[in-house]
Design a protein around this nucleic acid. Structure first.
Length: 587
RNA sequence: GCACCCCUAGCUCAAUUGGAUAGAGCACCUGACUACGGAUCAGGAGGUUACAGGUUCGACUCCUGUGGGGUGUGCCA
């Protein structure tokens, strides 16, 4: 058997081929390879049971037959894996040390891993729409999930060979700007002046504008006029709007830099303001949209809910809304980017909305014979405080993302000071930033995104359990071993041999499961599967580290253990990179 | 009202998409080479998976109902 990155797929293939040649089996048989409980093996095939049931055959003897045929076919050499029948009719595969070793020898660096993994999504063109803050507002906790989950999905897809386009769909257009411009003018606020935190000023002015419009009908009317002037390209309002956007984007950029988040495009809603006319026209001419109560809407007569709950894509005053620009955006991505797939990362409250958006796009594209990209709504739950209510600051305001990260870094700094006081101030600062920001980010990613979760500083930075510091610590210890032994991390190990001790084998088995973890994380776009895996890998390393000393005199154990260190470091760092966390030399 | 999501150990969360004896961390208890970095490791205890039925070789997972929590539901995004 050739050594491939994804062992499960190889096992699936040889089992499938063997069954195809074997009497009672036919094309309805599916091997169903899954990761097994480590006590039983590395992988198991579950497919015999349902097949036997459908034919009214004895699953146990059917499994025996298949196992025998597999061994006799020579497709599974005994030095690759032991196969056995267990329980009611499971096939268990236990990878052998010699094969584990061959796998470790084959994948020596990030590029080799990436190349092997990239077969999965080879060239598929995917747009990931994430983060998407609103102009003139500071980013707060509500933006963290979309930002970090989106970034990780983007990185994972790219690792799997997709051509990924990250697009930050900034809310830079809409009715709010009239009020904001009104408030800016009323306050005489100079948008060009140097300020400490101009985005915070804009946010305050925005609130002020809202308040003014609420309190007086004249102000509301003035705000409306300002908006009309902006929409008609009035020079003054236009440059005002541009300044607002410049300030907003530079404010967002500070956070993105800190989080290592980058976008290929930041086409905000304003980019589509002249592209909605086509949406209106085509939805009307295809009969997908219709007028209702003065607005333009889409109903779905066969849908339990949406036969009565409208999808409003043009307001009764003729103006566009979120839906209009999202429709135009999807069309643009399909035509200009040739997107085969679009992934939207937003909170769970928008589920209905996206279901309607997708249904509308499907109906519209079908009528026009446009190619419809695959559409995914990657939704996530709310971050809760200790009171189990959406997380807020003491005053009730949303917690600013920057403040949250600052606090994480401060707390991490206190721990670094305590644990490692001898490091230089520069090192401490660097470690605190990585540990603090990484801990916040990891705490988010390690949760199943579909649930709400309770935010807790203790859990985050207690630095025990399934946390970023635990993973970073494992990497730092490996790097420390190489430093101590005076060899570079990529030193060649020509005399390394297959793993022998229980801890060595356990670690090697875990390493080969990397591809399975990525498959899981990508199949349902849930990064927490990758986190769980990395945590278990770091755990297997710690067990190994405590059980078997690397820096020993005998060259045999020394080299084979060094190889395990190299590969653990490689997989952990690759995984951390996919999560957007930078590894540390020391901590 | 209707629709959707959720309920797993004292707490915070997993569970390979219907698979084997439901797993981790925290907290609690017992241990570890004067340390290749103890921000670690080994072990113990802790469960009627909200509840009641059903489907089948097998259910935390699927179907029905009940209770509890959350979200959405015509001009915000």
């Amino acid at each position: 058997m050739t050594v491939r990155f994804d062992i499960a797929q190889d096992l699936e293939r040889i089992l499938q081929v063997t069954a195809a040649e074997l009497k009672p089996f036919d094309e309805t048989f599916s091997a169903e390879i899954r990761q097994a409980d480590p006590r039983f093996g590395d992988y198991q095939a579950n497919g015999v049971l349902p097949f036997a049931r459908s034919r009214n055959l004895n699953p146990r003897s059917l499994a025996e037959t298949l196992t025998k045929a597999l061994i006799e076919s020579g497709r599974l050499e005994p030095e690759v894996a032991q196969v056995s029948v267990a329980g009611p009719g499971f096939l268990n595969f236990k990878l052998q040390p010699s094969f584990l070793f061959r796998w470790l020898e084959t994948f020596q660096n990030r590029e080799q891993l990436r190349e092997a993994a990239s077969r999965h999504y080879e060239g598929r063109k995917v747009v990931v729409d994430y983060s998407s803050p609103n102009a003139a507002k500071q980013m707060h906790v509500g933006h963290i999930r979309s930002t970090v989950i989106g970034e990780t999905i983007k990185r994972m897809l790219s690792f799997y060979g997709a051509r990924v386009i990250g697009d930050n769909h900034i809310g830079d257009w809409g009715t709010g700007f009239g009020k904001l411009i009104l408030a800016i003018k009323a306050a005489g606020y100079d948008l060009e002046a140097e300020r400490e935190n101009p985005l915070a000023d804009l946010e305050a002015l925005y609130k002020k504008g809202n308040q003014m419009a609420e309190e007086s009908p004249e102000a509301l009317e003035q705000a409306r006029q300002e908006l009309v002037k902006l929409q008609n390209d009035d020079a003054e309002n236009r440059s005002c709007w541009e300044a607002i956007n410049r300030i907003s984007r530079s404010g967002f950029q500070k956070i993105y830099r800190r989080l290592g988040v980058t976008f290929d495009h930041e086409l905000g809603e304003s980019f589509y303001r002249n592209r909605v006319e086509r949406v209106y026209r085509e939805l009307e001419e295809t009969g997908v949209g219709r007028e209702s109560e003065g607005a333009w809407v889409v109903f779905f007569p066969h849908h339990a809910r949406f036969k009565e709950q409208p999808f409003i894509y043009r307001k009764s005053d003729g103006a566009s809304n979120y839906a209009s620009t999202d429709l135009a955006t999807a069309l643009y991505r399909s035509e200009a980017f040739e997107a085969e797939e679009i992934i939207y990362v937003t909170d769970a409250r928008q589920r209905d909305y996206f279901e309607q958006l997708f249904l509308t796009l499907a109906a519209w594209f079908e009528k026009k014979s446009y190619k419809l990209p695959r559409l995914h709504h990657v939704w996530f739950g709310t971050i809760l405080g200790n009171d189990r209510k959406p997380m807020k600051s003491r005053s009730g305001a949303p917690i600013l993302l920057n403040d949250l990260l600052d606090e994480a870094v401060e707390r991490a700094m206190r721990i670094v000071e305590e644990k490692n006081p001898h490091l230089t101030p520069g090192e401490k600062q660097d470690i605190a930033e990585t540990v603090g920001v990484g801990a916040v980010r990891y705490a988010d990613l390690m949760q199943n995104r579909t649930g709400d979760y309770v935010f807790s500083w203790n859990k985050l930075l207690s630095l025990e359990g399934n946390t970023a510091p635990y993973l970073l610590y494992a990497v730092a210890r490996i790097k420390s071993i190489f430093r101590k032994m005076g060899v570079p991390e990529d030193t060649p190990l020509p005399h390394a041999t297959p793993p022998e001790t229980e801890a060595e084998i356990g670690l090697a088995r875990k390493l080969t499961a990397f591809s399975y973890a990525l498959d899981q994380a990508l199949s349902d776009l849930k990064p927490h599967h990758l986190c769980t895996y990395l945590y278990e890998l770091a755990g297997a390393f710690s067990t190994f580290y405590n059980a078997d000393k690397v820096n020993v005199d005998e060259p045999g154990p020394r080299q084979r253990r060094l190889m395990l260190c190299q590969r653990t470091s490689l997989v952990l760092q690759t995984g951390l990179h996919l999560l957007g966390i930078r590894p540390l030399e020391k901590m």
